[in-house]
Write a protein that binds this DNA or RNA. Sequence first.
DNA 1: AATAAAAATGCAATCGATTGCGCATTTGCA
DNA 2: TGCAAATGCGCAATCGATTGCATTTTTATT
Lengths: 342, 342
Amino acid sequence: MNKQSEPTIHDIARELKISASTVSRALNDNPRISLKTKEKIKAVADSLGYRPNTLASNLRNKKSNTIGIVVPLINRHFFSSVISGAEDIAFKAGYNVVISQSNDQAAKEIKIVQSMFSNRVDGLIISIAMQTNTFEHLKIFKKKNIPLVFFDRVIPEIITDKIVVDDFAGGFRVTQHLIDQGYKRIAHLAGTQNLMTYFDRKNGYIEALSKNGISYDESLVIVTSLTSEEGVTAVQQLMELPNPPDAIFCGNDTTALSVMIYLRDKGVRIPQDFGIVGFSNEPFSKVVSPSISTIAQPGFKMGQKAAELIIKEIETKERNPQTIVLPTELIVRESSSKKSIQ
Amino acid sequence: MNKQSEPTIHDIARELKISASTVSRALNDNPRISLKTKEKIKAVADSLGYRPNTLASNLRNKKSNTIGIVVPLINRHFFSSVISGAEDIAFKAGYNVVISQSNDQAAKEIKIVQSMFSNRVDGLIISIAMQTNTFEHLKIFKKKNIPLVFFDRVIPEIITDKIVVDDFAGGFRVTQHLIDQGYKRIAHLAGTQNLMTYFDRKNGYIEALSKNGISYDESLVIVTSLTSEEGVTAVQQLMELPNPPDAIFCGNDTTALSVMIYLRDKGVRIPQDFGIVGFSNEPFSKVVSPSISTIAQPGFKMGQKAAELIIKEIETKERNPQTIVLPTELIVRESSSKKSIQ
DNA sequence: AATAAAAATGCAATCGATTGCGCATTTGCA
DNA sequence: TGCAAATGCGCAATCGATTGCATTTTTATT
């Protein structure tokens, strides 16, 4: 009947007339089993095409060797880089990675997280969906002492390991750089202020203005979802002001690019007459002409760190919650290098 | 001792003084259990915070509800789109997705695939690593009748479901379009000819020339790794020919962009004096100016199809291996629209 | 040869959920 | 009231790997 069944340790044991426990120990290189016995067992295992059933061993060990990763959108370059970095470390440490995307929806995130719990993931790495504002589904991880790491989008009310990029310093440095390049009126294209990432970037911008004795002008800040289209709409609005800006700090490279194209097509010289800096160093920003200055957001590195932290939590059982702030790097390219041109 | 253990169905059974099998059946809505009993059981399950252990049910059912996906590189836009599409369908059908990347290395791919087998994935979706030239690690899936779907990079020697993009037709259509726009000498920036994808694109280019009575000139075809830098080098070489081309079909959008930037900076008018078409419709190709004509490679759709096929194989046990060829779509934008400009 | 210690292996239970078949209770009918 | 059928629940085994403690075998020493 079950002639086509997968060979188990019992098949090996039966053939050698030994116990299944010996087979198991031999295949796991237990020192209690003689080398001679181990070799006989491995030979039979090979000839039978035996493959361990990790469902069984995971159940017995109460350990799935799996790390869950939840991101808002897999095909966003930043998130796919984070996943790539995390998977790299996890794979090398012998962990499987289960990845799900929330599509920035709270309901889907809750469902995903519960499913990961039922699958007994050893730990969870997550970037919160934009719409999520209650966190019971995550608190259960803390309650059950299951390792949890937040990255990028984090929440203060759950005390656990977190990795963020220094958005405040990023915004500050961009603005300082534009000031240093001699730009006089700097605008800011901000993302939704519900998210700390965009909130912090704006605060960095405001702080740099303040530090340089430049008064903050609300009309120079536009809050959008940071799409290309909204970038164009925003720069149109800004250029219609009585006193238009001569530089802009965009919340992402996508809008920086569309702003640049719009202005260039209007005959505005970049960077001589108008400076542009983006954020997150998309692959195209280096390639376009003028190349776009930006803040590098270390996605791959962030993923690696997240994986290192979660693995440490899993393997040591230690809980010393820390927040790692990865430095951003200002990458100066042509779009904001007014002084180099003059 | 195990005071902190997760509640099991035995805890529920003990509290209600019933059997664990009744608990299991009630939680699975078995019609053999009365509604009254079901409600009592669910109430206790809720109050205990019970969560099913899917490791246990998966072992019992010999089914992991997991689909494995192996891609060469997660943070390549095309592959992350495929993953996104597949994960979308899989999630909705109640499957978990385990994703790994091979880094285009054969050894890593073998290790990943074996691990996925041990984890008893219900099915495997894979795009072959560039360096892989032996396939025993995949043949075991066919041998054990475990569902297997190849996408994009496929091999002929394993008969199973496959999804590819029509690269030949893509190359043909690009070239025909450039001819229709009045371009006289069309160059081709090809990728490595070891991969069918780039080989087929070139063949489509050659076929379109032939169909239009244009002789094939080898000096107009340059084989590169399709990086930005190599794109620039190649277009320099092409423009130094005694009879330079007036259009180019680039193997990807990255090189199309760098070619366009290089020429525009040299004062060449795009598309009036030189036409450019790329391949794979990167997000930036719509945004730059002039926007870049390209071939859309439906990554998300491909992922969805792959997931549908694998789920069908899993759930119906049917094996009617088919190869789905997704049509490419020529997206005409500014970079090749010579006739619209005149 | 006898004994003790070390090495090697085996028995039985565990992990937590599921399910076939048997048993107990309830319901309906004569 | 008694009997048969329907409904509801329980026992025990299963899934495949692991492991504590007991037992057996081997080795070394006197």
